[in-house]
Design a protein around this nucleic acid. Structure first.
Length: 446
RNA sequence: GCGGGCGUAGCUUAGCUGGUCUAAAGCGUUGCCUUGUCACGGCAAAGAUCGCCGGUUCAAAUCCGGUCGCUCGCGCCA
């Protein structure tokens, strides 16, 4: 079929075209009808005049979200009727209308304000909203930029498994699969152990991993199913080597989103993220806590981690003082970090670990890892973990793994902060939480 | 798990110091009109008994208790 995409219409002025798409808006003037047609590439106004009798007749029943094939001629709009928007100075005069499918009456006006709950109940429809399309176009760009930048750094992408044999990391709560061929297994809480293993074959390995977090958490930050953009690199001196690659990745992501989606940022009324001229500000946890107490009052010193409110405060301060929407916090207490985290030899109660905060929220967590087999086994034992249960993973170390480190970025979280979404769930096309997997979960008494 | 808020037409809300609320508005829907709109416009109509259960009261959408659901914050976590 010879079909023209809506985004290409500007090059076809005066030419006959066939377009396919959805009825976005219908404005009926009696003997003249305007329809905003939407396809995967954009929107355009089409005009259906009564003098094209058969097209005019066929257009009468059209309503929002009906899909159609329209044939007509691309025209420049009269001078005084141009709009300042894509395709705002052209329109298509339609001569033939074919209905491909009808749509039920919509439960609400497509782009009207909705409560989150109503929005989630109707995702197959509400994902078509301009706002949702914007969010997920930006998210696709973030993901692509992550991949592109790491490929340029020599990373190789691999597929981390979702089904895993144990609650690998401890810490995060794993979902248990009770009937895995009559035995049990878990859904991965991270690709961590696998990307460390993949340092063996690739030295620099990355993965975009579906992971699952079973915390009984009802906040605007939590999702039960998330996408983690992870990488792991061999032959590092310490965690700072990881941080510098991560910073570069973030700069590429911000640059790409800003360049490609300036219109979206404008519609969401957000600024492009602030990037400092030099490197991202870096504070040890203890330094950050001092800043919090000094600048905002309150109690932070001695805590093992930053509270959500403290994360917001550090970010506010870093933006003001360093012109950066990103802040690294390093040297978390070793006891607060996963077993594979490398301690800081200079002060072993602290670790060579870091979090990256972006606009008040932790979006990434990483560290240098322990690479020595014996040290790793001893650390596991000291934490009450049974090395036997990690025998599969430990093979990587038995057969020689270099000093290495890596990190993991939450795709939904970075998307949400990029567009200032009130709730991360809006940054997941199909969010899963304690009460919803597509539809609301039935109440099952246990 | 703890604490706060909310639950009124298809959607989004107003009303909630109890009584002309036999519940209001905008959007959407339906009908009629409309050849230049762009959240088109005009006229008309249909549409909720106020989440559910119970209580207080002469009288409850409005007060109280319970329950279900949603939402926000904390905890936990990325």
């Amino acid at each position: 079929m010879d079909r023209t995409y809506i985004s290409d219409l500007g090059q076809k002025i005066g030419e006959p075209v066939t377009m396919c798409g959805w009825v976005d808006v219908r404005r009926d003037h009696g003997k003249l009808m305007f329809i905003v047609l939407r396809d995967g590439t954009g929107t355009v106004q089409v005009v259906i005049n009564a003098k094209h009798a058969s097209a005019f007749e066929a257009a009468q029943p059209l309503r929002s979200e009906w899909t159609v094939r329209l044939t007509g001629t691309v025209k420049e709009r009269p001078e005084n009727m141009r709009q300042d928007e894509p395709n705002g100075s052209i329109e298509v005069s339609v001569e033939s209308v074919t209905v491909l499918s009808q749509a039920n009456e919509l439960p609400f006006e497509k782009d009207a304000d909705l409560n989150l709950d109503t929005y989630f109940d109707h995702l197959p429809l509400t994902l078509r909203r301009a706002r949702s399309r914007d969010i997920f176009h930006v998210q696709a760009t973030i993901l692509q930029a992550f991949r592109d930048s790491l490929v340029s750094w020599g990373f190789t992408e691999f597929q981390a498994p979702v089904l895993v044999g144990g609650d690998a990391e401890g810490g995060a709560a794993a979902f248990k699969i009770d009937d895995y061929y009559g035995k049990s297994a878990f859904l991965a809480t991270s690709g961590q152990l696998y990307k460390q293993i993949m340092v063996g074959p690739f030295e620099r390995a990355m993965t975009v991993a579906k992971t699952f977090r079973g915390e009984k958490s009802a906040t605007t930050r939590h999702l039960a199913e998330i996408v983690q953009m992870e990488f792991e690199m061999g032959f590092v001196n310490d965690h700072r080597d990881v941080m510098s690659v991560l910073e570069d990745v973030m700069r590429v992501i911000v640059g790409r989103v800003t360049e490609k989606h300036a219109d979206v940022l404008k519609r969401f009324d957000v600024e492009s993220p602030l990037l400092p001229k030099n490197s991202f500000p870096i504070f040890k946890l203890s330094e950050a806590q001092e800043i919090i107490e000094r600048e905002f009052g309150g109690k932070a010193m001695g805590e093992l981690d930053l509270e959500p409110e403290h994360e917001r405060q550090v970010c506010e301060w870093a933006k003001k003082e360093h012109g950066s929407d990103f802040v690294f916090i390093t040297h978390f207490p070793t006891q607060k970090r996963a077993f594979y985290t490398h301690t800081d030899p200079e002060s072993p109660t602290y670790s060579r670990s870091f979090d990256l905060l972006f606009r008040g929220l932790e979006i990434n967590s990483g560290s240098q890892r322990i690479h020595d087999y014996h040290e790793l086994v001893n650390t596991m034992r000291s934490r009450g973990l049974d090395p036997e249960k990690f025998a599969f993973y430990l093979q990587a170390f038995k057969y020689g793994l270099p000093p290495h480190g890596g990190c993991s970025t939450g795709l939904e979280r970075i998307t949400a902060r990029m567009l200032d979404l009130a709730n991360v769930k809006e940054a997941s096309a199909f969010p899963r939480d304690m009460t919803r997997v597509d539809t609301r979960l039935a109440n099952s008494e246990e």
